[in-house]
């Protein structure tokens, strides 16, 4: 069994049916999730740890995700990162360029509705360090999709690693046309501003964006989701 299989979809639960029928989501996280995910801040932030971990850190999940999305996704998990996580473990040479080695990816286990709701509640309680996500940093102003798209694509090159629409863009980063449903605006803002504050060795670079550009890009990504949903 591929030890990284659970990382493929971004979250990893090895849960059986109705594990948290009693609503003990914290117990579910403790018993089922910590083999793949850090639910407390890890002591090591080394490159070795990045290579060894099986799934994304969840110790700040409550400052990152939207609860309704978590509940829905845990019951019907779909891949968020086209090349899985850690992307470099799931590549093979193709005829023209590298492609995803699908055989290295395995679907994430589904949770029952009760377990998903309990787990989501427990995850939302994991807010992480107070200074990690800047509460209220994203001002929530509407942005021009044309301007945002130009900034996202030509001016800053975000599309090199991320997909702003299904099937077009990079595969090493998370798809972003579902980001507005998945993620909180303040998290998107804070992560773009400095990904290395969340994980010093993560493979997303810091773009050193000015404040107006951070607002514009965060707004664009959130609206992108809404646009794609129509």
């Amino acid at each position: 069994m591929n030890r990284y299989l659970l990382a493929a979809l971004g979250l990893g639960f090895a849960a059986g049916p109705a594990l948290a029928a009693d609503g003990n989501g914290a117990g579910l996280l403790q018993s089922q999730c910590i083999s793949c995910h850090a639910i407390t801040k890890p002591e090591s932030t080394s490159l070795d740890r990045l290579w060894e971990r099986k799934g994304p850190d969840l110790y700040y999940a409550g400052s990152k995700f939207n609860k309704p999305w978590l509940e829905k996704w845990l019951q019907n998990p779909v891949r968020i990162r086209p090349a899985g996580e850690f992307y470099t473990r799931h590549l093979k040479a193709g005829d023209k360029e590298d492609v995803v080695d699908e055989s290295s990816l395995t679907p994430h286990p589904k949770l029952s509705q009760a377990d998903a709701e309990a787990a989501a509640a427990a995850l939302m309680a994991l807010v992480g360090p107070a200074d990690l996500v800047s509460k209220g940093a994203f001002k929530g102003e509407k942005v021009s999709m044309a301007m945002g798209g130009m900034f996202f694509g030509k001016l800053r090159g975000c599309g090199a690693c991320h997909m702003a629409k299904p099937g077009f863009g990079g595969s090493s980063g998370a798809e972003l046309y579902t980001a507005g449903e998945r993620l909180q605006g303040d998290y998107i803002y804070s992560y773009i501003k400095n990904p290395q504050r969340f994980d010093p060795r993560i493979w997303m670079p810091t773009l050193n964006l000015a404040e107006p550009d951070l607002q514009r890009l965060t707004g664009y990504i959130l609206q992108l989701s809404a646009t794609e949903a129509k």
Partner: peptide, 22 residues
């Protein structure tokens, strides 16, 4: 393998997985 491969490729030939639509 951590940072460059996503664009420059596992064969180091500029044919990384992200290169398709760049």
């Amino acid at each position: 393998d951590t940072y460059c491969v996503q664009c420059h490729g596992i064969n180091r030939n500029g044919r990384g997985i992200n290169s398709r639509d760049m």
